[in-house]
Structure formats: structure tokens, C-alpha cells
């Protein structure tokens, strides 16, 4: 029982938290700008590289260095929006999708040019798990940090969306852009805010992932498809849906290796990355609006 919790369920939660933060940004930009942003994974990766360089330059611990890295990444994202996406507002969404695909290539190759392709650690060495509840629960400190920071950020995003003026405007635009414009909402300001939130959560996802693994130039692209799956699963434009979707996919991926009643894994781990997609496709067929009744375009 505890073996299941410690080695399958909790690692799934850790992975799920990272997917969830990434999916949050995808879901928001998809809901408000109405296109699937292929460059989201690269924004995540870029933020992790900024953090890496800031820790090297200033000696700050990674989580502290992540804050200025977020500011930098938000600036870059806003500049990219202006250059690559703004000209296509009102054009068919597919154009923006293709533009984001081009951006994905550009960001990744720029990072590879400036930082190289070697994987680099944010956190060296091995963290042995600490025990809680008399040894029933085993968690390494960095996982507590990952789960904790993810929760804090999710609550902050929730407060932003539900309590602030701009957050309410974001939800209004997501629900009905035409109506929102009629009521005098500054749609461009909403879009900027959306990019900012997406960039901040993406950087957080990237840094937390790097804490658990390392920083490398393909890290964003490797996470992109499961994050898309999480966003769809939860329902587009539904931040809490994205969080739930991320957790479901993260947990499903890890738990699928559990040797239920034997020594063989339930599902051959070679098919692990298929799980996210199988869940997603099943969800689309069964309930296209997602777990949390997101938008159906």
C-alpha cells in the first residue's frame, strides 16, 4: 500500500504538478487568444535557462533566481506576441498556430546557440527521501518544494482570475470576446496579462522540472504534447481544469507501471507516453468539453 503511494502515486503527483503548471498557460492562451501555442514548451525552457544563468551569475538559489527569470521571460513573451502574433489577431487561428510553430524553432535554436546543448543541472547530487508519518510517506525535500510551489502558484492564479479586475476581464474575454469588447474591456491589455500569466507559470513549470531533472534545450518540446493533453482534458479556458488534467495525466503515467498482482508492470512502460493521449482521445470522444466544461469552438 505505502509502496504504491510512495513510488507510484506521489511521483505521479510531482509530475502532475509540473504538467499542470504548463497546461495552465496553454489553457489560458488557448481560451483567450484562441490558438494552440506550440511555443509554450520553449517559453518554459527559456525561463529555465534564464534561471540557470542567474543562479550562476548571482549565486542565488534556483527558486529565488526564478523570480527575475520570470520577469525576463514575461518581457520576451510580450515582445514575441507583438512581433509574431499581433499581426494575426482576427485572422484564422491556423495562421497563429503556424507562427507559434516558427517561434518554437527560433527560440530553441537561439537557446542552443547561446547556451549549447549539454544538459545542465540546477540542483546537483541526490536527495534521499525524508520520512513522514513514521516512515509511511517518503518524499525528498525537492518534491515538497515542487508540490508546494505549484500549489502556491495555482492559488495565486485563481485569486488573480477571481478577485482582480484584469482577471475578471480575462475570464470575460475567454467566455465571449465579442461581448467583452462591447462592454469596454481593453482586449489588448487582457492579452498582455494572459501572456504574462502564461509565461510566469511556464517558467515555474520549467524550473520545477529542472529541479527534478536538468535544464536542456529539448525539455520544453518533450513536455508539450502531454501538456496539451492536460489542457484539453480539463477543458480549454478552465484553469482548474488544466490543473486537474495535469494531475490526472501525471498520476496515470506513473501508476500505469505499478505491478498490480505480480512483478510485471501493468502496462509496458514503453507505452507510457501513450497514456496521456489515450486518456485525452477517450475524453474527447466521451465528453469533448473536458472535465470542467471548457469551451468547444
Amino acid at each position: 500500500m505505502w509502496e504504491f503511494v510512495n513510488f507510484y502515486f506521489l511521483p505521479g503527483v510531482v509530475l502532475g504538478c509540473i504538467y499542470a503548471l504548463g497546461a495552465l498557460g496553454i489553457s489560458l492562451t488557448f481560451g483567450i487568444l484562441r490558438f494552440a501555442n506550440f511555443a509554450h514548451g520553449e517559453i518554459m525552457m527559456l525561463g529555465a535557462y534564464f534561471t540557470l544563468s542567474l543562479t550562476a551569475l548571482t549565486g542565488l538559489p534556483p527558486l529565488a533566481a526564478a523570480l527575475p527569470a520570470m520577469a525576463l521571460t514575461v518581457a520576451v513573451t510580450l515582445a514575441l506576441d507583438r512581433a509574431a502574433f499581433r499581426p494575426f489577431r482576427g485572422a484564422p487561428a491556423i495562421i497563429s498556430v503556424i507562427a507559434s510553430f516558427g517561434l518554437m524553432l527560433m527560440i530553441r535554436s537561439a537557446v542552443q546557440f547561446f547556451w549549447g546543448v549539454q544538459p545542465r543541472p540546477l540542483l546537483r547530487g541526490i536527495q534521499r527521501p525524508e520520512s513522514f508519518l513514521d516512515g509511511a510517506i517518503l518524499l525528498p525535500p525537492k518534491h515538497i518544494v515542487i508540490i508546494g510551489s505549484a500549489l502556491v502558484l495555482m492559488v495565486l492564479v485563481h485569486l488573480l482570475l477571481s478577485r482582480t479586475r484584469i482577471g475578471k476581464a480575462m475570464r470575460a474575454v475567454s467566455d465571449s470576446p465579442g461581448l467583452a469588447r462591447l462592454t469596454g474591456i481593453d482586449v489588448e491589455a487582457v492579452i498582455r496579462a494572459t501572456w504574462a500569466v502564461a509565461a510566469v507559470t511556464a517558467v515555474a513549470a520549467g524550473v520545477l522540472l529542472a529541479l527534478d531533472t536538468h535544464v536542456e534545450s529539448m525539455m520544453g518540446f518533450k513536455m508539450l504534447l502531454p501538456m496539451f493533453a492536460a489542457a484539453i482534458l480539463g477543458g480549454i479556458g478552465r484553469p482548474f481544469g488544466a490543473v486537474a488534467g495535469g494531475l490526472v495525466i501525471g498520476i496515470a503515467e506513473e501508476v500505469s507501471s505499478f505491478p498490480f498482482g505480480g512483478t510485471e508492470a501493468l502496462l509496458n512502460p514503453a507505452y507510457k507516453s501513450g497514456i496521456a493521449f489515450a486518456i485525452m482521445v477517450a475524453m474527447l470522444i466521451w465528453r469533448p468539453s473536458g472535465l470542467f466544461k471548457g469551451r468547444v469552438f
Binding site: 488557448f30 504534447l225 496539451f228 484539453i232 489515450a278 485525452m280 474527447l284 470522444i285 469533448p288
Partner: peptide, 23 residues
């Protein structure tokens, strides 16, 4: 199975099916 899905959803479903085929 999937044809009734609207454009973006069909996209995500087909991407998922292609990834499963790849595996």
C-alpha cells in the same frame, strides 16, 4: 469516431492517435 469533433479538438485527437501509432 472523431469526425464530429470541431477543428482544434480533431487536431488534438489526431495528434494523440499519431503518437500512439508511433509507439
Amino acid at each position: 469516431i472523431c469526425i464530429r469533433l470541431r477543428s482544434d479538438y480533431l487536431a488534438i485527437a489526431t495528434i494523440g492517435i499519431a503518437e500512439i501509432l508511433r509507439l
